[in-house]
Simulated assay, not measured.
Amino acid sequence: MVSSQREVDLADVFVLLADSLSAGHDVVDTMDILVQSSTEFTAATDAGILLADSGGVLHVVASSNERTSVVEEAQLGYNQGPCLDCFASGEPVEVSDLSEESGRWPVFVAIALSRGFDAAHSFPLRLRGHIFGSLNLFSSVREPFSDQDAALALALTQVATISLVQHQTIRNQGAVNGQLQQALKSRILIEQAKGVLAQRHGVPIDAAFSLLRTYARTSSSKLHDIADAVVYHGLSL
């Protein structure tokens, strides 16, 4: 049987996710792979990831673009939205038409709709009863995920979560929380590097992040390390 190119590419993504931390990447690199692959292989157009710190407070650690970051931060700021409900319940949350949920999440829905998002699909980063965060997929089409897309999103989150804790046991929660704290620090540095590159090249923030991500991938480097070089050592991309 001849495999399609999509199947080959998807298999490569699962291998990359499984190997991401053992290959020396940071948690933020693993989450970035998850964000990119989930929008490439499902009907979602945009994606973001929330991870909980040691105190159980959620933070945005990855997003496909700036408008997604804005919507994710709005959920956290106003404490409402499908991603938070997904994290709290540990179960997927499917919202095929956000406009019908204004009574449930009034501020979040207004912000999401203003940014061009009409549907949301959230999946927990969960392993053995422990919930570390959620993958949040957005689209401009008011319809539910297909069974195939939902199954794929769940599979991607499961592999990413396993890679997140593959060198630790769930009982060693302190070590896992340490990884998450490092991811949050890396995220801050990456945001600074995006700003530097945007100003340096006169491009939008999304384009600046694309420059950063592409350089890290082609040089087999951590996003954190490239961001550090841009911010503190004058690396020119």
Score class of each variant (00 low, 15 high):
Asn177Gln: 11
Gly81Pro: 02
Ser186Lys: 03
Ala120Pro: 04
Ala193Ile: 00
Cys83Thr: 10
Gly90Asp: 08
Asp147Trp: 08
Gly90Pro: 02
Ala74Glu: 05
Ser102Lys: 13
Ala150Cys: 09
Thr157Lys: 02
Phe41Pro: 12
Gly90Arg: 01
Phe145Asn: 09
Glu73Cys: 06
His130Ile: 05
Gln181Lys: 12
Thr68Tyr: 03
Gln148Arg: 15
Thr42Arg: 10
Val13Ala: 10
Gly81Thr: 04
Ala88Cys: 09
Ala216Asn: 03
Glu191Pro: 05
His59Asp: 04
Asp225Gly: 02
Arg67Leu: 04
Ala47His: 07
Thr39Val: 15
Asp97Met: 07
Glu143Trp: 03
Ser219Pro: 03
Ser210Leu: 09
Gln75Leu: 04
Thr214Val: 12
Leu235Glu: 00
Leu184Lys: 06
Arg128Pro: 06
Phe138Asn: 15
Leu135Lys: 05
Gln199Ile: 13
Gly24Pro: 14
Glu66Gly: 04
Ser4Ala: 02
Asp147Tyr: 07
Gln36Phe: 06
Asp147Lys: 15
Arg126Glu: 13
Ala88Asn: 14
Gly116Gln: 02
Val61Arg: 03
Ala216Arg: 00
Ser63Cys: 08
Leu211Lys: 08
Ile49Met: 04
Leu152Arg: 12
Asp29Glu: 12
Ser236His: 12
Glu94Asn: 08
Ala193Phe: 01
Ser4Thr: 04
Phe41Met: 12
Ala52Cys: 11
Thr39Ile: 14
His130Asp: 11
Glu94Phe: 14
Arg6His: 02
Gln168Pro: 03
Val159Ile: 06
Ser38Asn: 09
Glu94His: 13
Asn136Glu: 10
Leu113Met: 13
Phe123Thr: 10
Gly129Val: 00
His167Thr: 11
Ser69Tyr: 14
Phe41Tyr: 14
Ala151Pro: 00
His121Tyr: 10
Pro144Ile: 04
Leu137Ala: 13
Ala88Arg: 07
Ala88Glu: 09
Asn79Leu: 12
Arg217Met: 10
Ala120Leu: 02
Arg6Trp: 00
Arg142Trp: 00
His167Ser: 13
